[in-house]
């Protein structure tokens, strides 16, 4: 096993020593109280955010969006259109903040980088045989290198769920470590695909495994599997990054992705971020939404707040 980064305190460094210590550490994590977790997530979701706070939440959420297009039918033209929307989501209202990043497949990362040059909007690329992660390590690393050399500031990779569910934690850990090394200065987001992990305990283990291996962000889902992001799973991951900060002093981010379509949902996630992780996480540095349709709903709600009447889909750009 490669040596762990020096920043990790002794017990965490010890956990990554070999396969069996890793397994002992991950299985030694406290079990998740399913009922309690879901109840708390549901309780916090009832909180009502109105008026100025709502407007603030909408602007904050817009600034946290990774505007995503991951379709086989993506073209350079579509990336160009989305890039324009990412820079200036609502051209009628230039005070609307730009989104955080544009998330594309690696072959289109160069197109996105060119279109977003100088705008401050990041380029995120998926890699490692997204979305299934079923390929050899060599191919996965080559894909990461392709994305980084094309100008991606952030790389979203998937873990090998087969290896994880079979208990080969060491293999998953090493793969993430190698990917992290290949990323260089690019930020690494590790997709756990929680919809395939079956239990909350597994989500907590996968989360810690990714953090131990050097992930900058943990991300719920690819968006290709249902269920995608849910509030309880995000609560769990926010709890993990908070614990990680308490133990190591390092702040890591969380990105729920897939299935978040309305402003109401987004605000619930922001409440969870504030209550579970803390105020520090209410920033695009540490929290992102992986979404495509969400942006239009946020823009419509923003107009509703500012105009005093309901807006409609005719007044926002269609992502086609």
């Amino acid at each position: 096993m490669p040596t762990p980064p020096p920043a990790l305190p002794g017990d965490l460094a010890e956990a990554t020593r070999d396969d069996s210590t890793l397994k002992r550490f991950l299985h030694g994590l406290p079990g998740v109280d399913r009922v309690g977790l879901e109840q708390r997530a549901a309780d916090l979701a009832t909180r009502s955010i109105k008026k100025d706070s709502k407007l603030w939440a909408i602007d904050t959420a817009i600034g946290m969006i990774d505007l995503t297009t991951l379709e086989g039918a993506d073209t350079a033209g579509k990336i160009g259109a989305l890039a324009a929307k990412a820079r200036r989501p609502d051209p009628d209202r230039p005070d609307t903040p730009p989104v955080a990043a544009l998330c594309v497949y690696p072959d289109l990362a160069a197109t996105a980088a060119e279109a977003l040059n100088g705008s401050g909007v990041g380029v995120a690329s998926v890699a490692t045989a997204f979305p299934a992660g079923r390929s050899s390590s060599r191919v996965k690393l080559a894909e990461v290198e392709l994305a980084v050399s094309a100008g991606a500031d952030e790389v979203d990779v998937v873990i090998d769920r087969g290896a994880f569910l079979a208990g080969r934690y060491g293999q998953v850990h090493d793969e993430i470590r190698e990917v992290k090394a290949a990323c260089g200065r690019a930020h690494l987001k590790v997709i756990l695909e929680t919809g395939e992990l079956a239990t909350y305990d597994n989500v907590r283990r996968a989360c810690w495994l990714a953090l131990l291996a050097g992930a900058d962000f943990v991300k719920t889902s690819t968006g290709k599997v249902s269920p995608a992001a849910t509030l309880p799973v995000t609560h769990l991951m926010l709890g993990a990054v908070r614990d990680w900060r308490d133990r190591t002093g390092l702040s890591r981010g969380v990105k729920p992705a897939g299935g978040i379509r309305t402003t109401k949902d987004a605000v619930r996630y922001l409440v969870a971020v504030h209550e579970v992780a803390g105020r520090q996480w209410l920033s695009p540095e540490l929290f992102r939404f992986g979404a495509s349709g969400l942006l239009n709903d946020l823009l419509m709600q923003r107009r509703t707040q500012l105009d005093g009447h309901y807006s409609g889909p005719d007044y926002v750009a269609v992502d086609q």
């Binding site: 107009r303 005093g308 009447h309 309901y310 807006s311 409609g312 889909p313 005719d314 007044y315």
Partner: peptide
Amino acid sequence: PWLATHADV
């Protein structure tokens, strides 16, 4: 009034 001002009506 909400019906009359709604932009999607």
